[in-house]
Design a protein around this nucleic acid. Structure first.
Lengths: 352, 352
DNA sequence: CACGTTGCCGGGAACGATTGCGTAAAAATA
DNA sequence: TATTTTTACGCAATCGTTCCCGGCAACGTG
């Protein structure tokens, strides 16, 4: 089963010209006569000629395509980011190759090698939660591969980065819980080895402190796989609710942790927001329709994709090595709905 | 900014060999002495050599990658299918290139051209809702490009296809509404120019007829963009509820139509399932947590991706042109939850 | 008329890898 | 020892395209 395409040679042969002449005619070179150009262009059009990008990639050592690595496209946040990436990339004549790490650093590495060997002109990456060894990224970067990190960034590598204001998002969400009257606020967060984990946890802690509450390590639960592994969520919940002084609200620091929390709370027969308040990071379109409708911190995912791509194209198209790198921080948005609407009840004595 | 990779020439030069020898040593050819092989392999390992897939693609006219075209990766169904595709493709040494049509036939065509010019070895496609001209697919197919259609298939092109049992899924869902006591059952469906639209509508109608109800065209609303365009949904809903005899249940024939219906019903202040029952096709993970929890027809998305990929690899790796094509039909699964649980109320007189 | 300039085009190398063919040296055979 | 076979490697073409270089006309100029 072979699929044959028309080449520049076919045109040359048919028209009795050399391949060089045809190539130049197609590229509108000044050293080709108008008549010949017309001849070639018309014939090329007629037989539906398209230059072979593979041959071009080989010759030019560039592919006009950019590689994207995310952990999971099924995650609304990432699929929105990808749409942002595509919008900018396509208008600039670049194609986007998407690959998923599924939070595995091995798969991440494999994808990385595939993309680079495919001569992508640059990479947009949100690292997997498992990744602790950044040497391959560094090596790639040192050898001149343009890279932009977003969302889960790598501090130790100097390049452009795009993130949401994770600290403020977490700070505001936690503050909202406090202002709503919740007294013992727990958090479910990613590992602090992930930039988003660290920043959001810091925001949570700062909000507590600024309102005279001391962060309690017993109320901070880490989910290495960010809610992808059910057992991890269950364990975290069990630990929280077997405390002598269990939480009355949860701030979930990632998309799947947020919906996962709701699922776990429902399974326990607890009612939100009466028994427990819930707010979390989420970009799902459905949070408003959930039971109860969820208060969420929403990231400007599409815009983040756009920003990351603009920065990457800058790197790619720069003539000289870029040394002045920037980190763009975009504001999050808080959507307040029922899950944090504490009903007025008889005041409880709180020990916190 | 150029990213230089090590080539076979670098190895040849460093070891004082010819490129042919190095190439053969790397491919473990019998005509290379064990010592030379060892030398080459060790050096290649040391300098981290990887063959350039672009050069290989050019030479072999194959890329060991398959192209996938779906309308939207943000749709849970499609992201699950893609995971299925990747699982089979990767274990067979193929890479997957994902592209989105966003339901635009223009973008679909552009993606198609990009993928073929990138020498993908085969294509897995769910056509966009806008597409009415299948000539490009046919041409590609006729010229020997292996193609497998799934979900939204093209009847007029003879190749392998993978679909869910759309008829039965719709039939069962509608029957369930009838058995739950609903009397005037409306449907929101895709255009019938789409295979899934046609099949699901047929299932809906058959279920009504088999239970002594006559399908009423006033209760059948089409959404060309499958719920992606809010205005379209709104109009359909307005039309339904301005009927003198409005529906008391809705069967939504696609993912976004299902959640979109719930959103629209909530906006109207109608309560599900009391005022109106709701069931629909959906592969979202969150339907259980919605308010109310949604009864859904679930497609075996991951398995469909696996099946489609197996069939495609068969086509790709077949020595002779394949003429015996099959259409695999996988069963759907019905998950019954609150949105179809009609409360016992005073019997209404129904005119249907 | 001789010479430089310009316009227009072809030859061939290159990108990185594979592979059919040719061949020198070493080994096996007569 | 002479011949054949085997071993082990290099040369060069190929995939589709670009681009440097070289060349041949026709033209203009002194």
């Amino acid at each position: 089963m072979k699929f044959e395409a028309v080449t520049i040679k076919d045109i040359a042969k048919a028209l009795g010209l050399s391949t060089s002449t045809v190539s130049r005619a197609l590229r509108d070179s000044y050293e080709i006569s108008p008549e010949t150009k017309k001849l070639v262009l018309e014939y090329a059009e007629k037989i539906n000629y398209h230059p072979n990008p593979i041959a071009l990639s080989l010759k030019e050592r560039r592919s006009r395509s950019i590689g994207v690595i995310v952990c999971e496209i099924a995650n609304s946040y990432f699929s929105q980011v990808i749409n942002g990436i595509e919008s900018i990339a396509n208008t600039n004549g670049y194609n986007v190759i998407i690959s998923q790490s599924h939070e595995s650093s091995v798969k991440e590495l494999v994808n990385l090698q595939y993309l680079t060997s495919r001569s992508v002109d640059g990479l947009i990456i949100s690292v997997s939660t498992e990744t602790t060894d950044f040497n391959f990224f560094r090596e790639l970067h040192d050898r001149g591969m343009p890279i932009v990190f977003f969302d889960r960034i790598v501090d130790e590598i100097q390049t452009h980065k795009v993130i949401a204001d994770n600290f403020k998002g977490a700070y505001d969400a936690t503050t909202h819980l406090i202002n709503s009257g919740y007294k013992r606020i727990a958090t479910l967060c990613n590992t602090v080895f992930l930039s988003i984990g660290k920043e959001r946890l810091a925001g949570y802690k700062a909000a507590l402190k600024d309102h005279g509450m001391e962060p309690d390590d017993a109320l901070i639960r880490y989910c290495q796989h960010g809610g992808m592994v059910a057992a991890e969520m269950d364990q975290a919940m069990n630990e929280l609710f077997s405390l002598t002084n269990p939480p009355d609200a949860i701030f979930a620091a990632a998309d799947k942790l947020t919906t996962g929390s709701l699922r776990a709370l429902c399974a326990r027969g607890m009612s939100v927001p009466e028994d427990i308040g819930l707010i979390g990071f989420s970009n799902s379109e459905l949070t408003e329709l959930l039971n109860p409708s969820l208060s969420v911190v929403r990231q400007p995912a599409f815009e983040m994709g756009e920003e990351a791509t603009s920065l990457l194209l800058e790197l790619i198209e720069s003539k000289r090595p870029v040394t002045d790198f920037q980190t763009r921080v975009l504001s999050t948005e808080m959507l307040l709905r029922s899950s944090t609407r504490l009903q007025k009840r008889s005041p409880k004595t709180s020990l916190s």
